[in-house]
Design a protein around this nucleic acid. Structure first.
Lengths: 199, 199
DNA sequence: CTGGGCATACCGTCTAGTCGGTATGCAGCC
DNA sequence: GGCTGCATACCGACTAGACGGTATGCCCAG
């Protein structure tokens, strides 16, 4: 029960080209040629070039939100939940590396209403993550001497930065990397690290 | 006697507009109007729109490299040097927040040769930072159970992410924030944190 | 014969960059 | 001081091309 393949082909080509050359530097013509369809076909399924871009965001945001909800729903000790969420979001970000590239590079090219929707949904994710951290703090797992917003930014920074340095051809396996980054993050925010000695 | 204020005015306007609306969405006409000069004047000092963008990068890269060299030249225990470098790069990134926004968003809009120059200079910075970390590892300060490239990415991620969440109007003072982020990073890579819970 | 799926030619707009021209300043010469 | 010659700084109307989007119509399934 596939979507009309035109949609799929166009989306695939769009992500690839947008990631490689940027949204603004990619013409609709290039996209449809790479997808092997015509402009007419594309504009039959998409309202605008902007639509194409938003489609990419929509898929990613939905997927990550789904994962988050599933992990949270499964329950368990909050420390384990946080760890699982961290690993998951890093892994899926690696799976969707080109999407990530486009995401952070071209969000500002979306029309204003779309931009706010993306922002809203990201804030949603953020808030849920924040409440997990808050729980962890209440249980004495995580340090409280640094504003929670900073702890959280410190984590999402890693996720964000992936598309700027990680190469799937490199030596790092994605699962291992996810564990390593998560470990670095959790070690940094561990309660026992709180404001004592430097050096 | 300053550099012909045209250059300065144009650059200032360009950074502001590029940060607010993106490079591709900003026309040269808008830039020169905001700067209060004419197109003719601008094209007298800049070869192309691309030149404008590169100018922004050039200034930032030069400044940060200068700072890095100065700190390294000053010497001292490697742990202190690393800490000083971290704090400095975070602070200057906050001082140049709009430039940072443009930087990460629009690097791919530069012409290929310029892009490689930017990449080269960033790699330079990276390599020096990496050798500091390596020294620290040799002295037993930092953990060695995670690839050095990952440790370093973990830090630059924070720097990179600043322009996506930090607001100068927010509650965080820039010096305090720089210390907090540096602390989180250094705690994460501390040798004593190495591979305990494999869970 | 009807309508959704698609093809193609075309249009209006926008924009980076140009180019002929002007204004100003300065150096040397008489 | 006046004159010439030349360079630098700047002006702004104009162009050539690219690009997003559309109008129109064909084709085939039902």
């Amino acid at each position: 029960m596939k979507e009309t393949s035109v949609v799929d082909d166009v989306m695939r080509a769009a992500v690839e080209l947008f990631a490689a050359n940027g949204y603004a530097n990619t013409s609709v013509q290039q996209v449809v040629e790479a997808a092997g369809v015509t402009k007419g076909a594309m504009y039959h399924y998409f309202q605008s070039k902007d639509d194409l871009l938003f489609g990419i965001y929509d898929r990613m945001l939905s997927l990550q939100k789904e994962h988050l909800d599933a992990i949270v729903a499964q329950g368990g000790p909050v420390g384990d939940v946080v760890r699982a969420v961290c690993i998951d979001v890093i892994e899926t970000s690696i799976d969707f590396l080109p999407e990530g590239t486009v995401f952070f590079r071209s969000m500002h090219m979306l029309t204003a209403p779309r931009q706010s929707e993306v922002t809203r949904r990201r804030r949603d994710y953020n808030d849920i993550f924040a409440s997990l951290i808050e729980q962890g703090q209440a249980e004495g797992l995580y340090r409280t001497d640094i504003p929670r917003a900073v702890l959280i930014a410190n984590f999402f920074a890693d996720v964000h930065y992936l598309s700027h340095w990680y190469s799937p051809e490199g030596p790092e396996g994605k699962t291992l990397l996810a564990e390593q980054l998560t470990d670095l993050f959790l070690t940094g925010i561990d309660a026992s690290a709180a404001k004592g000695a430097a050096s």
